[in-house]
Every structure is written in structure tokens, then in C-alpha cells.
Design a protein around this nucleic acid. Structure first.
Lengths: 193, 193
DNA sequence: ATTATCTATAGATCTATAGATAATGC
DNA sequence: ATTATCTATAGATCTATAGATAATGC
């Protein structure tokens, strides 16, 4: 019995939804959320636009699924990271321009008024800053070699990661994203361990 | 004779164009470039959409004017800055969320394929990195206190400025943008002067 | 019965072109 | 003559709803 027939309806439906979310990630990377049409996403999975709306009743519902997907893929706000794992994350990101482009485009759009991803990003960054402060505290204690606290350093760490992504997406030849991120870590001072 | 009648046609036309560009900056801040309709910009200056097209024949032509405006407003790529002036620039930016929002939204969109501002931002960042390297060299010489070169530090400086803008736009209460930028400068090490 | 998908279509937009009309400036 | 502005409109899209049809699963 072929694999397909072993699947029940629920599983098949879940797979279809996942396929649609993947397609949406691609289209958003290419055109942003406002520029992404449901028809373009649907075409990529061999559906009509109305067929897609069977799985996600509105465009915003699809965006919510995209954002949720990210939380599962890169658990930056919630995982207990270590500084050396952050380096690995940046190296990994440098191999996946598509996904970075999706979320860089979404972040940019999200600062405009009434954007449906605005609340998501606001909350996410608050959590990421908190989490990064904890990471820095675990690594350096209450004070970094340069005298700053983890809480004051965290927004800088996050800013560097995001800012480097834009420079790298625009000009990957000229910007060594992981190298620059490592440089930033040396700026933080010698690791006490 | 009232002021208006003293102006010749060329001057009046230039003023109208400037008015339209200002309105475009606002609408882009609110909705991004793809989301900004010519009708919305036109309405803000009391014109019909077709009337606006008399001054800028296409939507992209208007975007070019917006980007040119920025180059005149904040000459980051071309002015010979000093580190303390950069602090002032960031403080100044913190008082103008609108303009920062416009260009943060445009930067975000620009990483998507075929965006009309992509080339502009790619070139701009190459120039900004070069310029910032020169600023750092003037301040610190060929090597910073932490051992990095100006060329390797420049992308980090730029990334911090951009990344902080996103965090600040999303949550101005939680992010002290100028303070964080000053923190970054202390990370670079003591000023040798 | 429920799920998956389609056709048809309403109702909004959006950019850009064509061409008219009024006002301004040599 | 040129400039500023308008009305009319073509031609593309876009999201979302309504409702039909076929396939799947208790």
C-alpha cells in the first residue's frame, strides 16, 4: 500500500497547510506581504486562489501561520541560547537567504501603521532582548568586560544581528555576516570562561 | 504685492514638487512604498491622482525623488562625519520618527526581488560603510582599542544604527535609541584623544 | 457528513493614458 | 506656447463570498 494511502484526512490536510505556508514564505521573500497575492501563493502549490482560502480563510490568517512557523523554526525568543550557539545560528542563517529575506521584509513592513505583523514583532523583540540579556549574564555575569550590563548590551546584540542581515541581503559579496558577528562578540570582551 | 505673485512659474512648480515629495514621505511611512497609492499622496496635497502624475510621470519617478530628498537631508554617505556628530545624528533621528519610519520601511521592502529602491540601498550601504571606516580611522587610527580595524568595525556601526531603529520604531518606550548607540561607542573602546 | 476544490463574480483598488479646459508667461 | 489641473476610462489586479461538484471517511 503506497504511503499516501496510509495517511488519514487530518494528516493530509496538515501537510497541505504546511505546503501553503512554505509557498507563502517564498512569495513574501520575493514581494513582501503587501505585495504577495494569494493567487501567487496558490499557484505555487497548484491551487486556485479560492482553493487556498479553504485552508486559510483570510490573507491575515495565512500571515499568522507564517509567523507561527518561524517561532518553531528559530526559537530565538524562547530557547536558552549560549553565545557560541548564536554564532552557529548566524552561520546557518547565511546559508538560508530565502528565510532571512522573508523576515527582513516583514520586519521592515511591520513598522508601518496598522501592519498585521506589528504586534508580533513588538512582542518578539521584547522577548528576544530579555532572552539575550540572560544569555549574556550566563556568559559574563552581571557586568561585561567593557563595563556594560547584560540588559544594556542585549539591544545592541539584537541590532547587530538584524542590521547585518540587511547589509548582507543587499550585497552578500561585500558583507561577511558571520565574520562580522564574530567581530562584534570580540568587541564585547574576552570570554571569562 | 503678495508673496505668491512674486514667484515665477519655475519656483512655484518646484515648490509643488517638494510638497508632493513631503506627502509621499508621509504616506510611505504609513503604508510602505508598495502600499502607498498615488491617490493617497495626491489627496494630501489637494490634487487628483492624475494631477500628481503631471509632476512625476510614474510612481517610480516619485520614489526616485523621495530617495534623492533623503540624500540631501541626511548626507551620511558623503559628509565627513565625526563620531560625536553621529551621536547627535542619532539623537536628532529620535526626534523624527516619521522620516526614520519611511526609510526603515523602504529598506525592508528593498531586499525583495526587483524592488525599485534596491540598487539605491545597495550603493548607499557600500558608501556608508566606506565613510564610516574613514570616520573610525580618523578617530582611532588603523586599529581600534579592541584590536579590530576600521574596515571591519564599520559594518557593525552601521548595523547597530539600523537595527536599533527597528527596535525603537516598534517600541519607543522600551528602547533608548541614542543611549544604546552611545553604549555601542563605549564598546569600541576609549577614545584616544 | 465532511473535506477539497472549482467556477463565477462582486466590489475595491491601482497605475497610467488620452484629451479637455483654464490660467500663466513670453 | 506652456503649465497646471481635471474628467473619463482602459486594463490589471486583489480579496473575499456564494455556491456547485467530486471525493473521502464514518
Amino acid at each position: 500500500m503506497p504511503y499516501g494511502e496510509l495517511m488519514n484526512a487530518r494528516v493530509r490536510s496538515e501537510e497541505r497547510r504546511a505546503e501553503i505556508v512554505r509557498a507563502a514564505l517564498e512569495v513574501i521573500a520575493e514581494r513582501g506581504y503587501r505585495g504577495a497575492s494569494l493567487a501567487a501563493v496558490a499557484e505555487r502549490v497548484g491551487l486556485t486562489q479560492q482553493g487556498l482560502l479553504h485552508y486559510f480563510p483570510t490573507k491575515d490568517a495565512l500571515l499568522v501561520a507564517v509567523l507561527t512557523e518561524r517561532d518553531q523554526w528559530d526559537a530565538v525568543p524562547d530557547t536558552q541560547w549560549r553565545v557560541d550557539l548564536l554564532v552557529s545560528l548566524v552561520e546557518y542563517n547565511a546559508m538560508r537567504p530565502g528565510i532571512i529575506q522573508t523576515f527582513s521584509a516583514l520586519l521592515g513592513e511591520s513598522v508601518t501603521e496598522g501592519h498585521p505583523a506589528r504586534g508580533y514583532f513588538t512582542e518578539r523583540y521584547a522577548k528576544v532582548r530579555e532572552n539575550m540579556a540572560a544569555v549574556l549574564r550566563a556568559e559574563y555575569g552581571d557586568q561585561l568586560p567593557n563595563g556594560l550590563t547584560p540588559e544594556r548590551t542585549a539591544p545592541l546584540l539584537v541590532a547587530v544581528m538584524d542590521g547585518l542581515q540587511y547589509q548582507w541581503l543587499l550585497d552578500p559579496e561585500s558583507v561577511d555576516m558571520p565574520g562580522a558577528f564574530r567581530d562584534f562578540l570580540t568587541l564585547l570582551g574576552e570570554n571569562p570562561h
